[in-house]
Amino acid sequence: MNEVARKPIGRFVPLVVFALMVAFFVVGLVWNQSHDARFVPSPLINKPAPDFRLPRLDRPTDFVTRADLLGKPYLLNVFASWCFACGDEHPVLMAYRDKFGIPLIGYDYKDTPHDAQAWLQRHGDPYHEVITDQSGDTAINFGVYGAPETYLIDAQGIIRYKHIGPLTPDVIAKELEPKIRALEQGT
C-alpha cells in the first residue's frame, strides 16, 4: 500500500486550532494574575447615581439625599462593621482621608447603627459623614453586592468610578487619584 502521498494541509487544522487555544489560555492566565474575577464592572459608570434618602449615623432623624451632595465631587465608601475586608481597608482610609481632597462619605451597609458606631469608635472614623442603609435596599440601586466598595461621584451626581474590594495605596495612586484630579480639572 502506498501511503507516502502528499500530506494534506487539512491535517494541520487541529494543530493550528489547538495552538490558538493555548495562546488564548496564556493570555487568560496572564489576565487572571492581574485581575480579581470577583470584580464585575458596574453598568452605572458615567450614569447618574441613583436617588437616595438615608439617615445619618450620628443623627438618625436627619436624612441625606442625593441632591444634598450635588455641587462638588465626593467619594462614597460602602462599609460595614461585619465586613472583614473593610477592616483591612480602614487604615488606608484613615491615612488618605485628607489627601483625597474631596469629602469621603461612609455608607454603612446592612448594619445596625449601634455596631457601626462601636466599630468606628474602636478603629477611628475616617468619614466626613456617614449614612446608613440598614435594609440594603438602596444599595441595590447602586449595584452594591459586597463590601467594601467605593464610588467616585462628580459634582453633577454622575458616578465616575467604582472600585470593588478594599482600596489600597496602589489602587488609589493608579486609579482613584487620577480620576479625582481629572474631575477637579474639569470643574
Partner: peptide, 8 residues
C-alpha cells in the same frame, strides 16, 4: 437587574 448589575 441589568441596569444595576450588568448582564453578568
Amino acid at each position: 437587574l441589568v441596569a444595576r448589575y450588568s448582564t453578568f
